[in-house]
């Protein structure tokens, strides 16, 4: 969800102001109460402001957790627009940090209640991972749009690369005259001269004489690059080096086979983009695993904290 763009910011501005205002009011009450007895006394979690902030923070956290079923179990229900839920999740979640820091009187010292301290650290991790995620979601999609024109569905990258490998294999075989059983050969040898070459985006090719080096080239460079889990570290991962390699193979082939090499280069370029997409996808989505896992732990321990706090109030 893009926040700081011209279209969305006016929508978020009121939420942002509400959070800032709420934080200022909460801090003001906290300070007034702390200085109320003359000198400064840290208002505890059960003081009037501390208790109030704890209750509000707990309710917000319960609401935050509802986003999970809202996006999975209750997807079809009429529970308000997802955009509103996400906005509320983001800004109210941010608001819990000052509220619950005040509730826990900023104590991160483990000599105090370990449960309270663990809750404080979990809260910081959850909010920090949320802020990180929101930031990534404001930056990475734009970068991806610019730098990964071949973007595909991340989960399908492996499948698409498999198709690319098959296409490259078929193209090379057709070019060197070793068609696969199910692949028709177009064109024919006539006195050792190539009559026509038509390289289609779909991977079909025609025989080109003296193209045998292409087979070794395919097995040495193309196939490993298209079948590896990640192309990083392989010779074709570097665009500059790949360009040199492709120019080198072209020198060993007839000019009629050059379009085949260009197609192979295009497939490798897409592979390079998929690697970049994977890295961006990592930054774009993996924070969520941390955010959700720690949120679940935080919520569970918060319930324990509430029970214990009420039991030994």
């Amino acid at each position: 969800m893009l926040i700081f763009d011209r279209e969305n910011w006016p929508y978020h501005r009121s939420w942002c102001l509400a959070v800032v205002l709420g934080t200022v009011v909460a801090a003001g009450w906290y300070l007034a109460y702390g200085f109320g007895s003359g000198g400064w006394q840290w208002p505890g979690g059960s003081s009037p402001p501390g208790f109030t902030f704890g209750v509000i923070g707990g309710l917000i956290m319960a609401f935050e957790m509802l986003l999970w079923p809202r996006k999975s179990l209750w997807r079809g229900w009429r529970l308000g627009r997802t955009k509103i839920w996400m906005t509320a999740h983001l800004w109210l979640g941010l608001f819990t940090l000052p509220l619950l820091l005040l509730h826990g009187d900023f104590r991160f010292d483990p000599s105090r209640s370990t449960l309270a301290v663990v809750l404080m650290w979990l809260l910081v991790i959850v909010v920090a991972s949320g802020i990180f995620g929101a930031t990534m979601q404001n930056i990475v999609p734009r970068l991806m749009l610019e730098r990964v024109p071949a973007e595909t569905i991340h989960a399908q990258i492996g499948h698409v690369l498999g198709l690319y490998r098959d296409e490259a294999d078929e193209l090379v075989r057709a070019t060197v005259g070793e068609p696969r059983g199910d692949a028709p050969v177009e064109g024919s040898r006539r006195g050792g001269k190539l009559e026509s070459v038509a390289v289609m985006g779909g991977g079909k090719g025609q025989y080109v004489a003296d193209s045998e080096p292409l087979v070794d080239f395919f097995h040495q460079y193309i196939e490993p690059y298209l079948t590896a889990a990640t192309g990083d570290g392989l010779p074709l991962a570097s665009p500059r080096r790949a360009d040199a390699i492709f120019r080198s193979i072209k020198r060993n082939l007839r000019v009629e086979a050059h379009p085949v090499v260009d197609r192979l280069a295009a497939l490798c370029d897409e592979r390079r983009q998929f690697d970049l997409q994977s890295r961006m996808h990592h930054w774009l989505h993996n924070w969520l695993a941390v955010h959700v896992a720690f949120s679940v732990a935080l919520f569970l321990l918060m319930i324990v904290h509430i029970v214990m706090a009420l039991k030994y109030v």
Partner: peptide, 11 residues
Amino acid sequence: RLFQQSRLASR
């Protein structure tokens, strides 16, 4: 300390 009940809920 993390596992000591006395410090689990104690302020």
